[in-house]
Nucleic acid binder design. Structure first.
Lengths: 335, 335
DNA sequence: ACTTTTAGAGAAAACGTTTTCTGAAAGAAG
DNA sequence: CTTCTTTCAGAAAACGTTTTCTCTAAAAGT
């Protein structure tokens, strides 16, 4: 491997001079600079990142930890951060936690050990003990924020998202709305649930129309069965995410319930398959790719410009009406 | 940050001794070893990977380059490699190429610069010029192999995959089979196409029932239109991947063609949504997660045991019959 | 013309390890 | 009791950089 020493020898200068030329921060005599540049070009020399890192300089490496890349919600986000990271010469370490805080801490420590310049974290809990001891590198929370937030984050405004979902259902005359979501352990789940609650404050026997499970199709199916068995009346369901909606729709249809004629279903996320699935899912679209992009930008700014005021960004989701909410013949009022 | 020096001082020994204890390759007197271990435990000392890397030791870091994480084919593969990598203490760099060989080379060089111990590559071409100049680290090709293969690879046996697809269609009486695939630029696409060809050698006007596009839903739709417009007769379609099948099904249905009554469609890949989509797609399941796992295992073996004989592994896909191939009432012969 | 400032190049220290080399003490062999 | 091994700890070199420090020579000021 060609290192700074051989470049120096080849160019007939000292290694200090080579370093100065390739980093370009101090002035070097014109002829020497050109000679060095020429040798660098010829040999394809690139300074060794391990050595630079050892000197305390940035490694141009960012850690990204998410629950599960196989969850269709995350690929777009990952791609968003990779695209801007790559454009800026950063490489990204990707880690999965499966929603387990023990693993999450493990990945966090692994990344610190790898001397990443910063960590983008989709945490699986609202309080993250291992982040409380101040870290030496910037941390940006993605998609979910913490209780005691001294960290920058970029999230989606789920209160707004649930509001427009409910508004849409009311517009088409659905007033007995059920909610099937995830246990409110993450900020996102909590916010969605609370937004639903606020919209139904005066509702007496609301409790039995609210069900909590996990963000999976299986869990969605299970909870739909439970809702059905409860005997509670409902004409529409707001789901915590699209996967849950898939399960719900399957179960409802298996019970001979017509969607959207008998009950309207609206999902949340707008993962890619929701546009293909039949019936095509009405859902709240989250700007996932943009979320990744913006997070990566914030991170790179924090790394390079040393910005350490925390920044909080909330993105707006929007409603996509497909086939699972509006029965034929019903006119959706302008929302 | 706690480094080897403070551990040495704390334990009252030299840094050499500390190094020897934490690496455990040479013998150290019992009492000193215990003292050091105790201090290491207390301080949470972990040796700096940059310094180790600089000494030429492995960085316990692997590069994984794929075309696009947003392509639903890849998350399972990525997860497969991450799971075994993680279990063995490796971190993985994930890179996207979008099928562009220029970008692929760029990512490859970026990874070399990051001093990864090895690279897992899903290449977008059958010959990879930048790999011809011998690399100092192990390379394992995933999912696709090259012409002049001096590299280890793990792939899926697509000849077998297409054979069982065709056999299935013939079993249910479909004899005029069309093929809509990707231009045979990767080994996978080429193999699928050739397997189809071999099965139809005596067929006179076969050409017009073979169409090449890209591995996307849009392309699938486009080619289905083309096939329809050609006036060529067909009773079934084998698609190069599931995404193409989605596009094909949409177009066929829009033309009032019933699936599977009028024409049978079989996909290839079995991406997650194929089990949900309606109609549920009959397809060839590829063991994608296993492919990632096995690739990672080969890589780690190559890194740690220095195995440098090239190893070639072919995994067997299998048929999953869902709703797009067998018309009601037709009995599928035992295959 | 002589001193003072400035430009800019090289030497050397430092980053945190691993590992070879050196050396001392203890044990074995004569 | 002396000499030769052996065991094992510490010193020091090395990995490839960046950057501070030192020094020379030229430019600038008087």
């Amino acid at each position: 491997m060609v290192n700074i020493k051989v470049v120096a020898k080849e160019a007939g200068v000292s290694i200090s001079t080579v370093s100065r030329v390739v980093n370009g921060n101090t002035s070097v005599r014109e002829d020497l600079r050109n000679k060095v540049l020429e040798v660098v070009e010829k040999t394809g020399y690139r300074s060794n990142f391990l050595a630079r890192g050892l000197k305390g300089l940035p490694t141009r490496t960012i850690g990204l930890v998410i629950p599960d890349i196989e969850n269709p919600f995350f690929p777009a986000m990952v791609r968003g951060v990779q695209d801007v990271a790559n454009r800026n010469g950063y490489a990204i370490f990707l880690c999965n936690t499966d929603g387990d805080m023990k693993l999450e801490e493990g990945q966090y420590n692994l990344l610190l050990e790898k001397k990443v310049d910063g960590i983008l974290l989709v945490s699986s809990s609202q309080d993250i003990p291992f982040l409380e001891i101040a870290s030496s590198i910037p941390i940006v929370l993605l998609d979910r924020y913490t209780q005691s937030s001294n960290f920058s984050y970029v999230v989606v405004d789920h209160t707004y998202g649930i509001n427009i979902a409910i508004k849409h259902l009311r517009n088409i005359g659905r007033l007995r709305i059920a909610f099937i979501g995830s246990k409110p352990i993450t900020s996102g789940a909590r916010e969605r649930f609370q937004a639903f609650l606020v919209n139904h404050q005066r509702d007496p026997n609301l409790k039995s129309r609210i069900l909590f499970g996990k963000y999976t199709q299986e869990s969605g199916a299970e909870m739909a069965e439970k809702l059905l068995n409860s005997g509670e009346k409902f004409d529409s369901i707001v789901c915590g995410n699209d996967l849950i909606a898939y399960g719900v729709i399957d179960v409802l249809q298996n019970h001979g319930i017509k969607i959207p004629e008998d009950v309207s279903v609206v999902g949340y996320d707008d993962i890619p398959s929701s546009a293909y699935r039949s019936p095509k899912l009405t859902t709240i679209h989250q700007p996932i790719y943009e979320l990744g992009q913006i997070g990566a930008h914030m991170m790179i700014d924090a790394i390079e410009k040393g910005l350490n005021e925390t920044k909080h960004i909330k993105l707006e989701p929007y409603l996509i009406v497909r086939e699972t909410s509006v029965p034929r013949g019903v006119k959706s009022a302008n929302n």
